[in-house]
Amino acid sequence: MSTEDRRPHPPGDDDRVVDLGDDFVVLPEQTTDDTDRGWGEATGDNDDRLLAERPPHWD
Rank of each mutant, 00 (worst) to 15 (best):
Leu51His: 10
Pro8Ala: 00
Asp23Phe: 02
Pro8Trp: 00
Asp33Phe: 09
Gly40Gln: 08
Pro8Glu: 00
Asp47Tyr: 12
Val26Pro: 00
Thr31Met: 13
Gly38Val: 02
Trp39Gln: 09
Asp15Glu: 10
Asp36Trp: 10
Leu51Asp: 14
Val18Leu: 11
Asp19Gly: 03
Gly21Leu: 01
Asp23Ile: 02
Glu4Ala: 12
Gly44Gln: 02
Val17Tyr: 05
Asp33Val: 01
Ala52Ser: 11
Asp15Ile: 03
Asp13Asn: 05
Arg6Cys: 07
Leu20His: 10
Asp22Thr: 07
Asn46Ser: 13
Leu20Trp: 11
Gly38Phe: 06
Asp23Ala: 11
Gly12Phe: 00
Leu20Met: 13
Gly38Asn: 04
Trp39Cys: 11
Asp22Asn: 07
Thr43Asn: 14
Asp13Glu: 06
His9Ile: 05
Leu51Trp: 08
Pro8Tyr: 00
Glu29Trp: 09
Val17Gly: 02
Gly44Leu: 07
Val26Asn: 01
Glu41Gln: 15
Pro11Asn: 05
Pro28Asn: 03
Arg7Tyr: 04
Gly38Glu: 02
Thr32Ala: 14
Pro28Met: 01
Glu41His: 15
Val17Leu: 05
Pro8Gly: 00
Gly12Met: 00
Leu20Ala: 11
Arg37Pro: 01
Arg37Ser: 11
Glu41Ala: 13
Thr31Cys: 09
Asp15Trp: 03
Leu20Ser: 10
Asp36Met: 14
Val26Trp: 06
Arg6Tyr: 04
Asp36Glu: 15
Leu27Val: 15
Val25Asp: 06
Asp19Arg: 07
Ala52Met: 03
Asn46Met: 09
Arg7Phe: 06
Asp19Glu: 09
Leu50Trp: 13
Gly44Asp: 04
Arg37Phe: 03
Thr35Pro: 02
Arg16Ser: 02
Pro28Leu: 04
Thr31Leu: 14
Asp23Asn: 14
Gly12Lys: 00
Asp14Asn: 11
